[in-house]
């Protein structure tokens, strides 16, 4: 019992300490900025994991919600002079509401129909972003989005301070998802994923469960998107486009779907690799496509799943001895 607690403390504490020390250890602004974008993306990937991993539905509109969150923050702060700290909650609320409305229609379907429907939604979101030029800047996108304003003595203009802000939001996201999955609500998610009929039979409102999961997933996407807009200072339609959903799906599947560390591990690993191999950028899709297929066919649990298998094998051997 005690050793399990120690193990958990180590599993949580070591990565957190490393993450806190990271900017000091590497002392390289480029690597820190890569980490910032990985953290921000990972927040959205956690949202995808809630929907795909915990309730079992593939939403291909996910990057659309990421884009809507980003554009809402961008438009409110740069065009209307809102504070980032007011714009971000508005973006979350607006995207959640939109997610709720889209969910009302989309969640009349499941599985393959749901994936097709959300794919169409994802394409429509990009079309609206590209056509509504007066609001979104069309295909050029928005530039000059201000960085998050100061809170008391804390200012977020330097790269390192933005890093810690992104880290704080990431930790918050992981905590929210963790508490969700350890609550009764989280268990209804899994019940609905494993068998909707069975879940209904024990009195779970499957429709409402899916709806809640979809809204949470959209809200996390918006949180990531809003942070992305404020940190990068600009946003374009491709941020909300379907290939972006594909990227997030690759991070999630490689890291490990339906696991807590999976989204973070996959996002950091693949985004880091893509930065390291920038010379091969044009081959990205050509390489990631087959990798995604290999993961789905041979390692559907991703790295986190493999790690768990390995861990269990080791501990079982310990117990046998």
């Amino acid at each position: 019992m005690g050793s399990a607690h120690v193990r958990r403390a180590v599993a949580l504490g070591v990565p957190l300490v490393l993450a806190i020390l990271f900017p000091l250890l590497v002392n390289n602004p480029y690597l820190v900025s890569v980490a910032v974008s990985a953290y921000v993306t990972a927040i959205a990937v956690y949202g995808l994991n809630v929907m795909l991993g915990y309730t079992g539905q593939l939403s291909l509109a996910h990057a659309g919600f990421y884009g809507i969150g980003g554009y809402t923050v961008g438009i409110l702060t740069s065009d209307y002079g809102f504070s980032f700290w007011l714009a971000l909650p508005i973006a979350l609320a607006f995207t959640s509401l939109l997610g709720h409305l889209i969910g009302l229609a989309a969640l009349r379907t499941r599985h393959d129909y749901f994936a097709i429907f959300t794919l169409a939604v994802g394409v429509m979101i990009v079309i609206v972003i590209e056509r509504w030029e007066s609001l979104t800047g069309g295909t050029d996108g928005l530039i000059g989005i201000p960085a998050p304003g100061s809170i008391g003595p804390l200012s977020f203009t330097s790269l390192n301070s933005q890093y810690y802000l992104a880290l704080a939001f990431l930790v918050f996201t992981i905590y929210v998802v963790w508490s969700l999955m350890h609550s009764l609500v989280g268990r209804t998610f899994l019940a609905v994923r494993n068998s909707e009929e069975l879940a209904r039979a024990v009195g779970i409102d499957a429709g409402r469960t899916h709806q809640l999961s979809f809204v949470i997933s959209a809200a996390l996407a918006a949180l990531g998107g809003g942070l992305y807009a404020a940190f990068s200072g600009s946003i374009g339609p491709d941020v909300g486009d379907v290939p972006m959903t594909f990227n997030m799906l690759v991070y999630l599947m490689i890291g490990g779907v339906a696991s807590l560390p999976g989204p973070l591990v996959g996002t950091i690993l693949i985004m880091g690799l893509m930065q390291a191999l920038q010379a091969f950028q044009e081959y990205t899709l050509m390489i990631l496509g087959p990798i995604l297929i290999l993961v789905v066919v041979f390692f559907p649990g991703g790295l986190a799943g493999q790690g768990k298998v390995l861990f269990e094998r080791l501990t079982r051997r310990e117990a046998d001895q």
Binding site: L285, L288, G289, I291
Partner: peptide, 10 residues
């Protein structure tokens, strides 16, 4: 479905 997306992007 995810594998099909992998094929598409490949």
């Amino acid at each position: 479905m995810i594998a099909a997306l992998g094929v598409l992007f490949f």
